[in-house]
Amino acid sequence: MNDVSMPYETHGRTGQKSRTRTALVTAAREMVANGQTPTVDRAASAASVSRATAYRYFPNHASLLAAAHPETGTQSLLGDDPPDDPAARLDIVIRAFTTLIVETETQQRTMLRLSLEAQDAAPDHAPLPLRQGRAIGWITEALEPLRGQLTDEGLHRLVLAIRSATGIEALVWLTDMAGLSRDEAVDLMRGSARALLASALPV
């Protein structure tokens, strides 16, 4: 598990603490997979952990949701020996990203709903832990060979454009609103990523 640990977990019986944290996160993820809203109290009950102990690991609802997100532990999508060509690198990342989204669609939809509800409840609050921009990092890593060909601002805008055309938000719109099948939606997202990259490259 690559989630950021709370200070409580970094000393003492670290092995037991790691197992307790894993149990809480697993319980929360099972709730998300079932379309339920996980809370620290509910996760503690499901994991047979006391409420007081659970709050030492997750002091609030947002920190638990961030840990329960399906993408939390994934640091890179490029693999061990990625190609140098940015188009090939991007295709690897977008294929892996869209596969992840489809395979965890129920959880992704639940997290999207919870994220939007939290934002509506506190629109002026700090950025939500759920929207930590992991996909932004994956896409940026894919396009690193373009540094020097594009300005930093231009590269960032390209990454944002590609992210806006992929992910759970795009999948929901393409399937629920546009009526595409999941395979059609994935093909369109991958094609959009390729087209956006091609349009941004210097002639």
Rank of each mutant, 00 (worst) to 15 (best):
P86Y: 08
I94P: 01
A96Y: 01
A52T: 15
T26P: 06
R95D: 15
L77K: 01
I92H: 03
W138L: 06
A62Y: 09
A142K: 02
Y55F: 15
R29F: 03
T72K: 12
R56I: 09
F58P: 01
A66L: 07
R113V: 02
I139H: 00
R134Y: 10
R131T: 12
D91Q: 13
D41R: 14
I136G: 05
E117Y: 05
Q36M: 13
I101K: 00
E103C: 05
A67N: 06
I101E: 12
A47C: 09
F58V: 04
I136N: 08
A33C: 11
V49K: 10
P82C: 07
P127L: 09
A54M: 10
I136V: 12
T53C: 06
P82N: 11
G35T: 09
A96S: 11
T140W: 08
P86S: 04
H61I: 01
G35Y: 10
N34P: 01
R21A: 12
P59V: 10
M111C: 11
V40Q: 04
A96H: 02
A87C: 03
Q108V: 02
A47V: 07
A44T: 05
W138I: 03
D84E: 14
I101Q: 12
L65V: 07
A96L: 05
S63H: 10
F58Y: 15
A126R: 07
S45L: 14
S18W: 13
I92R: 10
T74S: 08
P86E: 04
L128E: 05
F97M: 11
M31H: 08
R95G: 15
R131H: 02
H61E: 14
D84C: 00
V49F: 04
T140F: 10
E117S: 07
T22A: 15
T106G: 08
R131D: 14
I92N: 04
A23K: 14
R42K: 13
L128Y: 02
P83Y: 08
S76P: 08
V32N: 05
G73I: 03
I101A: 11
E117A: 12
A28T: 08
A44P: 01
V32K: 07
R51G: 06
A118Y: 00
Y57A: 09
A52M: 13
D124W: 09
E141K: 09
R29D: 09
V49T: 14
I136A: 11
H69F: 06
A47H: 03
A87L: 03
P123C: 02
I136L: 14
P82L: 06
D124L: 13
A28V: 06
E103P: 01
E71D: 13
I94K: 02
A47I: 05
A46Q: 11
E117C: 01
E117N: 11
A43W: 07
Q108N: 10
M111S: 02
D120F: 06
A68W: 07
A33F: 11
V102W: 07
A33T: 05
P86W: 10
R109I: 04
S115K: 07
A62I: 00
V102T: 12
L100K: 09
D124I: 03
V25F: 10
P127D: 09
R51D: 12
A23S: 14
R29M: 13
R29W: 01
V49I: 15
